[in-house]
Amino acid sequence: MYGFDYHRPAALSDIVDLLTADEDAKLLAGGQTLIPTLKQRLAMPTSLVDLSAVPGLREIVAEGDGVRIGAMATHAAVAGSEVVRAMLPGLADLAAHIGDPQVRNRGTIGGSIANADPAADYPAALVALDAVIRTDRRDIAGAEFFTGLFETALLLGEVVTSVFFPAASHARYAKFPNPASRYAMAGVFVAKQGDVVRVAVTGAGPSVFRWDAAEAALSARFSADALVGLVLDDDGLNSDMHADAAYRAHIVGVLARRAIA
């Protein structure tokens, strides 16, 4: 690891100021991606700004017709939250299968989405459930948050503080984890809110995306059978030693059906 300075202010405004004043400073949440990245010398930040002392960011509370999850809530906390389990059990189940137990005890929802790994699980939930990402300065719609490979709509110094998930009559995630890394080779989150059906796909492309044809089919008839014969176009999908694009397109179809049944 290269050397860096370390700050852990208790005021969110101080966090934002430190990050804004130095574009080479990095925000530290649970560190389950950032610390290994630093150890491999794949990043050389001037300083780490630790979010963990800012109060209130770990709360998970029912709010209106949904649940608000603080940015520093760990995957284990989301998985075990009675509020989440009651309102969106599919979201709790997603959190319960990220990484492994030790990673889930440290990794956070805010860190995961701000990192925007193309194979992360949470992005599919945020897009399918039409979540709203709250930052220190504004609200961002889930559909507009993920803008590309490891790219988000966050501005310099902008800090995610919570994510609001509206309730859904159906919310379920199915993934094909890479047997070694447990990252999603593909993952599909299917959500139904009123008459609106969203099918969000992670792991298969450079960033999370919606599968329009599946949404149209499920809007007409919300049943796994409605997807039989429907194949995702593999143009632009990820292709690597683990799975080529055509294979990923195939498992997206399988996972979408599993996420309904």
Binding site: Y6, G31, Q32, I35, P36, D50, P101, V103
Partner: peptide
């Protein structure tokens, strides 16, 4: 590389990989 878990310790009662965490944390 935070995969094998040999370095697992408990932090405030929860298991964590001590090689994937800074002492300052």
């Amino acid at each position: 590389t935070s995969q094998c878990g040999a370095c697992t310790v408990h932090l405030d009662g929860a298991s964590v990989k001590s090689c994937a965490m800074l002492a300052v944390q």
